[in-house]
Design a protein around this nucleic acid. Structure first.
Lengths: 141, 141
DNA sequence: GATCCAGATCGACAACTGTCAATACAGCGG
DNA sequence: CCGCTGTATTGACAGTTGTCGATCTGGATC
């Protein structure tokens, strides 16, 4: 429970409504962005997916290079990015290096995006309407 | 429902284990990466957070520029990125333009990262061990 | 219409990112 | 010890991204 403390900003002279949650501070935003940056590449997403698709929960680089269609150095680079973001761990066993997902971190990221995260995500709106509201929460796409 | 069809690849001559899920194809990965790219910036995360923090569920640019500490053109640019990624919608009402989150898209992204997403995320492992496994699923950091 | 204000767009620039070929490094088998 | 193979690192380069000042647009007010 994030305890939505209501900060009294606002003069409401113009537009806008009062805040009902503390917005993300810069440090936390930067940290989060680092993780999302790691996810912001098709190759890396496919890498995660490939690793997760293996029955043992892990995969070595040799399994990943070919299905990705990228060069071995590039794959290695992407894996490094994922590792540094904490999304995967690596372990050398003999010749091969095995990568596996870090489910807790992925789950935590999902949670930030989801309902108990940084913003209200479902239809859990306080139903304000003494406000500048004009249009219902319609789907626009 | 992703119906985890088991594709029989593999000769298991070397390392690796069989696939138990279909890995993300390139098109889908690219589409997903586009959305994560939009999230991969501290300013944009704070923007989303700020919008979500408002009681009415929306905010105009004038509310966002100052707490972000970025110039107005930059904020406008970020909002455009978020809008094009489908994460927010904008609506002009008189002088001001109001932005609001698109909860469904955020929730969908969370779902991809989470349990019913692209990779197994909880401790729902099939418990393989006729494999190259050597070490338990320890945290490596 | 002239003016003012909120936002968007443009142009420029530095910083970062994805990619690969070449090379280095680390175990393993002879 | 020497070569082989899997993986990491380096260097280079093109493409993308974040940022801002300057300028444009569009609604509201006088």
């Amino acid at each position: 429970m994030p305890s939505p403390l209501a900060l009294p900003l606002l003069d409401a002279d113009s537009c806008s409504s009062p805040l009902v949650r503390t917005p993300l501070d810069e440090g936390r935003a930067t940290a989060l962005a680092l993780r999302f940056k790691a996810l912001a590449d098709p190759g890396r997403l496919r890498l995660l997916s490939l690793i997760g698709a293996h029955e043992s929960g892990e995969a070595c680089v040799c399994d990943l290079t070919e299905p990705l269609g990228l060069s071995q150095p590039t794959v290695s680079h992407h894996l490094k990015v994922l590792r540094e973001a904490g999304l995967v761990t690596s372990e050398r066993r003999g010749t091969w290096v095995h990568y596996r997902l870090v489910p807790e971190v992925l789950a935590q990221l999902a949670a930030e995006l989801g309902n108990d995260g940084l913003w209200p995500v479902a239809s859990e709106r306080p139903a304000v309407d003494g406000e500048t509201r004009t249009r219902p929460t319609g789907t626009t796409d």
